[in-house]
């Protein structure tokens, strides 16, 4: 039995496996399958200041080794999250990352200030959603706007602030350095890659939004590369994600530079994916005589 615990920005995780924001709702749906306390943490569904209905359906398409989604941040709004969801989540005996987004730095700062008054352990600022017009990627695609966003949010909270980055940029390290300079405590990556599928028969895009975000095993090598680049560009911890399907994938992402790993798309088809991945990671560490998961981080011997 290896020691799976990791520590990020002073927060203790019992293991490094965290369901990613957007696939796990606010946790309730999966509590019927297993005790959520077995998870390293939970990144809650991205929450905006006001209720949003999201984009029209269809919002999902299958792709080779992946999926496209165009949910567009459907959520009940920050006040409903704080009143109806967060108190329940905080009772699950695991680390909660409150993922949030908004259409301006002021609005995001307001949300951060509200979250700051709660017992939530970490804030995950999403500046990388490819499916909404205002906010999301509009801030994450440019180092200056990303910095402006993080500056405003940083001033509103003393809680550990994770900034979630987009892969839809020319140089992700520029964005990572910009948010680090404004006081981000960690970065998480990658959000989805912008993609599109077309139904040949109807000549219509499958997604009603035309385009959507690609995730799943198809993006895993991109995630490994970007986690590695970012881990070498900043001093703050990196939380890695993108296509993780197995314990070995998690180990690979940690070697590339991740201190913890989020799992998204794998859960969409398999509710038990996070538990299986935790077990597989443990078995792999044991088989290889490695005592702790934490010692994997950033140990790739690059050529």
């Amino acid at each position: 039995m290896a020691d799976l615990s990791v520590k990020i920005c002073g927060v203790e995780f019992k293991n490094p496996i965290i369901p990613a924001s957007g696939v796990f709702g606010y946790g309730r749906e999966y509590a019927q399958f297993y005790d959520l306390s077995r998870l390293g943490g939970i990144a809650a569904k991205g929450t905006t200041p006001k209720k949003q209905n999201g984009n029209p359906a269809p919002r999902i398409a299958e792709t080779p080794s992946g999926i496209l989604n165009s949910v567009g941040l459907q959520n009940p709004g920050m006040d409903a999250f704080l009143a109806d969801e967060l108190p329940w989540l905080l009772k699950q005996n695991t680390v909660i990352l409150a993922n949030f987004a908004g259409s301006s730095p002021e609005l995001c700062a307001e949300s951060a200030a509200k979250l700051d008054k709660t017992d939530v352990q970490m804030l995950e600022l999403n500046i990388s959603c490819p499916n909404v017009k205002n906010g999301g990627l509009a801030f994450g695609a440019d180092p200056k706007t990303a910095a402006g966003m993080v500056k405003a949010v940083r001033a509103a909270t003393t809680k550990p602030l994770v900034v979630k980055l987009s892969p839809n940029v020319t140089d992700i390290t520029e964005i990572a350095k910009a948010v680090e300079a404004e006081g981000a405590d960690a970065v998480s990556l990658i959000n989805t890659l912008l993609g599109m599928r077309i139904d040949l028969r109807t000549r219509r895009p499958i997604l009603r939004n035309n385009t959507g975000g690609l995730s799943g095993p198809a993006v895993f090598p991109v995630a490994v590369r970007m986690v590695w680049q970012v881990a070498n560009a900043v001093q703050i911890p990196v939380i890695g994600m993108g296509g993780v399907q197995s314990g070995k994938d998690a180990a690979e992402l940690m070697m590339a530079g991740a201190s913890a790993v989020q799992v998204g798309t794998a859960i969409v088809a398999d509710p038990y994916a996070p538990l299986r991945i935790i077990d597989e990671l443990n078995d792999w560490l044991d088989e290889n005589g490695i005592a702790t998961a934490a010692e994997l981080t950033k140990t790739v011997k690059a050529w």
């Binding site: 749906e29 984009n55 269809p58 499958i206 969409v268």
Partner: peptide, 17 residues
């Protein structure tokens, strides 16, 4: 009918107004 992901109400892809 709608295209689905998780099937349990968590991923929010199968929207219907």
């Amino acid at each position: 009918e709608e295209r689905m992901g998780c099937g349990v109400g968590a991923c929010l892809v199968c929207a219907c107004n």
